[in-house]
Design a protein around this nucleic acid. Structure first.
Lengths: 201, 201
DNA sequence: ACCTGAACACCGTTCAAGT
DNA sequence: ACCTGAACACCGTTCAAGT
């Protein structure tokens, strides 16, 4: 009987998540066996199950990592003096740092999220959190007269997230490589969506 | 030795696709066993494998069904006298006919598509086809001066598809029920994106 | 051609046993 | 607490045998 070793716990969990991510990207979630993850992480099934209660629990760990990354990006938009500029900086940073690995892993995770109710609840909360952060920043910019009020801050936030997600999904489907090509199109679309100005109805 | 019966082939294939779809929606693609599909379709494993070569092949059948449905909707936009009106009619029809079953099945299928190269190629072709149909209709409307030219027809088409997809994904995540609530937001966003008029840069 | 159901290699997960 | 590896019930797929 030993006492719980928090550092070891953290290290091993990170090792497993990283090894599992590699496997999922290479072979897909369901073509990856627990044995595969064990080999990649260098441990036995029993050990793996000591740290994660199920294969779905590993996905939950990856979802949490994505949520934290999104929150970090969006929190920077609040209090920015120029919203559109800050948004574009964030998009450039995203385009510069996101890899094909991330995009494919995200797609794997997205599907699994819908079929596991407990994952779905967490993903919904993460999405609401993202929308609220973004809506707060948009509301500030609207109050300054920088952005149109033809959409409410919450409506605008949902549209922005939907547009970015849809573009990322397409970039993944058509080779992640052309994300750069789509970046300018995305920025123009976001400008038309958000910036002050009237369109004919 | 009998000769191939095309009618039977079609009927059995449709039965299998429908039964499989029901199972996938209920339990997810990978929690559905071939035995489950066999029970739902009322046939033995050997018979099922006589009509579909693999579980992935069943997904391919569902993907093809989605492609055909999308093509049908988008083909109606070409030659419409008023693009935005025709687009809104199409969205209303979509919102009215699409069910939670369709949305969840689509999400299931989307993920599987990325991990099976042969499915991915087909999905890419289907997406290109959709974009080209939509771009053609947008180009016509731009030529009439109905839509802005600040985005090219192809760019605009990609943005429209991305925005709709992103909204559908969110509707699925947050209960399919609120698709109606999001419809008005989506229409406003599409108007800002496409309609004639300038925004401040 | 169409259909059955037993059989094959393999899967996610558990658990008695070790340190 | 942490770790091992054999064992369990089950999976997708195949195939000899029937009509």
């Amino acid at each position: 009987m030993r006492t719980r070793d928090d550092d070891l716990n953290k290290t091993r969990s990170a090792t497993i998540l990283s090894a599992a991510g590699d496997c999922f990207v290479r072979n897909g979630f369901h073509s990856t066996s627990m044995k595969d993850i064990c080999s990649a992480a260098g441990m036995s099934p029993g050990t793996l199950y000591h740290y994660f209660r199920s294969k779905a629990d590993i996905i939950a760990g990856i979802v949490e990592g994505e949520r934290a990354a999104t929150q970090l990006i969006l929190s920077r938009l609040t209090d920015a003096p120029d919203f559109m500029q800050a948004l574009f900086v964030a998009l450039d940073a995203l385009a510069g740092s996101i890899t094909e690995r991330d995009l494919i892993l995200h797609a794997e995770v997205s599907a699994e999220v819908l079929r596991r109710p407990e994952l779905r609840v967490r993903a919904r909360a993460a999405d609401d959190e993202a929308r609220d952060w973004l809506a707060a920043a948009i509301a500030e910019a609207q109050a300054r007269g920088e952005l149109t009020r033809s959409l409410s801050a919450h409506e605008a936030a949902v549209c922005v997230l939907a547009l970015i997600d849809g573009m990322l999904w397409r970039a993944t489907l058509h080779e992640a490589a052309d994300l750069g090509d789509r970046l300018e199109t995305l920025k123009q679309a976001l400008t038309r969506l958000l910036a002050e100005g009237e369109v004919r109805r």
